[in-house]
Every structure is written in structure tokens, then in C-alpha cells.
Design a protein around this nucleic acid. Structure first.
Lengths: 235, 235
DNA sequence: ACCTGAACACCGTTCAAGT
DNA sequence: ACCTGAACACCGTTCAAGT
């Protein structure tokens, strides 16, 4: 009897939150129906009463994450509203690092994502954007609108960990890599930008994210001011 | 004897190209060591003489794909050189639609990717960029520098396929989705932009990709002309 | 020494047997 | 009617047996 009372009765919501917690703590590769069931103190097949299959479980997890993003503050202009919301999305994704890949690997937009995108479009239209420009802007922002960093370049920092020990901080690039790719090494060495006290710390992710975000937002603002339409390319 | 002569002897190269072909044709989810071995007319364990494990196989496949990207043409200015190369990368990825997710899911940059990034940095530095600006530009371009479309928004087009039959073209959004997300429907309806003959065709992926690419390149060009440094934010 | 079949430790999911 | 253990059809990879 103690075993059956140990936890609240199973529900879709409890399953989804347990799955998110498992992915957060152990990584998405540890998320199996069997592991999840064990975490919940339940037999694996019990999960299938609440989620149809693993894909639907992942969709539900994505909706949980997207639901954590702050709603748009309606008191500011479109640019600040959008900027704040994207940065909020980024903070959410930092708590759930598995989410970007999970979202990209699903081939269907979930209701929560559609709702998020819809209200973002609303921000643009309320800011006076034509439907035409709003459309292209949504494409141009791409997954960055959900806070994705999509740091391909970040991978170069991890490029050296082939050998055994991993001593010290990831300062610049390993010597062998730096020798083969000298120009990568050159800009990596510039990574300790205006923060003087931080040397060989690697990149400031928040700075890089805002740099790219503002580059896009400023360009979008310029097109908007110029009354851009499809017949004229940006520039 | 006929069986043993049926194919060329196994090699790492032959394995990698067979794996790329399998992923291209049947999808990355069909790529298993067992399926790949069968395609090659070989016992599964034979593969392990040439690749250490499946992760190394994926790394090798990524290098094959990245190797198909045109080298930079050295005769133009940085902007056109970069633009052409990114568009070349995009064409390559369109032939290998599994590659973006595969690249993002690997946590280590492969030699071919590092080489690609290194020569791209070289283009920027040769164009007179400071190492500082070149560094942030690489981050801002992100995976788009490898031709990634990262069309999150594209997913909304596929949002309606829950029911059974799938009749006709994906014209705008399904009625139920359009009703719940009216502003998404509004900009989706604007998708048939200046091409008058195409109605309800969905988005022009190439147009959207170049729109975003040029938005970034134009913004980058502006910063470069202004002699941007870390102490001043873009804008 | 080389190759390879069987085996191991997992998966997601089906299905029939048990209550 | 509901729940669930065993089973099925897969994985990637180890390992020992066979040549």
C-alpha cells in the first residue's frame, strides 16, 4: 500500500514534467520510455495511457518548454517587445539545452509553437509592418526567434578533446588545431574582447547572441522604415 | 566466388559514400549499421574494421557532404565571395537534407568543417575585417554560414497533417489552424509574393534564404565600413 | 591473425494473458 | 474493462569461437 501511495496518480502533465526534468538532468539520450517510467515508479506500458507514443511525448515536452517563455509585453514598440521576448526564449532554452535539437527533429509545429509564432507576428503587424515584410522577417529570424543560438562555430572550441586528460580551461584552440587552422585560431584569440580580466575564457555567448539579434533587428528596422516590399531586395 | 567478386573490396571511403546514399534515399532514420552493411553486401561487423563506431561514421558522412561545397572564388570581394559560397553550401545541403540535423547533433567539429570555417575567416580577414569583427560575424552567421536554412517557421506549413487524406497542394494553412492562429494565416496568405502565377504555392525557400542572408551581409558590411569594434554595439 | 556469428544490453511498441 | 508482463522487431557493440 505504501508503494501505491508513494506518488500522485499518473497524468499526462506529470509525465511531461518528469520527462523534461529527466532530459534536463541526464540528457535527451537518457530519455527512454523505460527510464521515464522508472523515474515515475511505474511500469513502462502505463505511460501509453497518457501519451500515444514517444513522438507525442516529445511534442508535449516541447510545449512545456515553449510555455515557459514570457508573453510579449504590450507596452513597448515592436522592436523592444520582440527583442525582450527572444531573450526570454533564450533564457528558457538555456535551462533546457536539449530542446533546440528536439524541436528541429520534430517535423510538425506544436500548438504552443504556433501560438508563440502567431503572437510574434501580431507584434510585427501592430508595429505597422506589411504582411509581406512580416512574412519575410519571420523567415529571416528563423529559429532564432525561439531563442536558438545555433552556434555552429561553438563546435570548434570542442574540437580538441580527442586525447585523454582535459586540463585547465578551454583557452583558445589546442595547439595542433591552431596550427592547421591558423585563421580560426586568430579570431579565437580575439575572443577575450572588451572584458579585460577574462583571458582565454572562450566566447561570451550572451554577447554573441545579442550581437546577431541586434544585427537582424537593426536591418529589419531599416527595411521597415524604408517601406520595403518584395519587389525590392534588402540593401 | 561470384559473391565475393560482386563488389569492390570494402574501404572507409566506400562505406561513407554508401552511408550518404542510404541517408539521402531512405532518410537518416533508416541508417543503421545493419542496414548499411546489407546495402554493401557485407556482414555488419565488417564495418567496424573501417569505422570505430556509428558516431565516427556520422562524422565521416558530414565530411563527405562538407567536401562537396565549392571552394571560395578568390577573384571577388569578401561579400560576393562569402555570399556565393554560402549559397553553394545551401545547394549541397538540399541534396543531403539529413545533414543539418546530423551536424548539429554531433558535439565535435569535424576536420572538414574546421577547414571550411577557417577559409571563410580567411575571406573576411582578406577583406580587411579586424579579427574582432570577424569573430562576431562568424557567430552571427552561425550555422547559416554552412547553408542551414533553419526554417522553424516552415514547420507551420506541416502543422495540419493530423487527419487522414492529404489532398492538393499545401495552400496557405488548413482552416482549423488558420482560425486559431489568424495572424499566422494572414502572413501565410502573403506567401505568394511577386510571382503572380503561383497561388497558394507556399513559400519560396530560395527567396527567403537569400532575404535573410542579404539582411545579415548588408548589416555586416555597414559595421565593417563604420570600423565597428567591440566597445560599440551594432546599430 | 583475421573474420564473424552469436550474444549482450538496450530500444519502442504490440499483444495476449491475467485480474 | 483495465492493467501489465512477456514478446517482437529492432538497435549498437562486445566477445569468443571458428577459420
Amino acid at each position: 500500500m505504501a508503494e501505491t501511495l508513494r506518488r500522485a496518480p499518473l497524468s499526462r502533465d506529470r509525465i511531461l514534467h518528469a520527462a523534461v526534468a529527466l532530459a534536463d538532468e541526464a540528457g535527451i539520450e537518457s530519455l527512454s520510455m523505460r527510464n521515464l517510467a522508472q523515474d515515475l515508479g511505474v511500469v513502462p506500458m502505463a505511460l501509453y495511457k497518457h501519451v500515444a507514443n514517444k513522438d507525442e511525448l516529445l511534442d508535449g515536452m516541447i510545449d512545456v518548454v515553449v510555455g515557459e517563455i514570457d508573453p510579449p509585453a504590450a507596452d513597448a514598440d515592436w522592436k523592444h517587445t520582440l527583442r525582450r521576448r527572444v531573450l526570454s526564449a533564450r533564457q528558457v532554452l538555456r535551462r533546457h539545452p536539449w530542446a533546440p535539437l528536439a524541436i528541429e527533429s520534430r517535423n510538425m509545429a506544436t500548438p504552443a509553437i504556433l501560438s508563440y509564432l502567431d503572437s510574434t507576428v501580431g507584434t510585427l503587424l501592430a508595429g505597422g509592418f506589411s504582411t509581406d515584410l512580416a512574412h519575410h522577417v519571420m523567415h529571416a529570424m528563423g529559429s532564432r526567434i525561439l531563442g536558438f543560438s545555433q552556434e555552429l562555430f561553438d563546435a570548434s572550441r570542442r574540437a580538441g578533446r580527442s586525447g585523454g586528460t582535459d586540463p585547465g580551461p578551454p583557452a583558445a584552440l589546442p595547439a595542433e588545431v591552431a596550427a592547421r587552422f591558423p585563421r580560426l585560431a586568430e579570431i579565437a584569440a580575439a575572443a577575450s574582447h572588451d572584458d579585460e580580466s577574462v583571458v582565454g575564457q572562450g566566447c561570451d555567448d550572451q554577447f554573441e547572441f545579442e550581437f546577431a539579434l541586434d544585427l537582424l533587428l537593426d536591418g529589419i528596422e531599416r527595411l521597415h522604415r524604408q517601406g520595403w516590399t518584395s519587389s525590392r531586395r534588402p540593401g
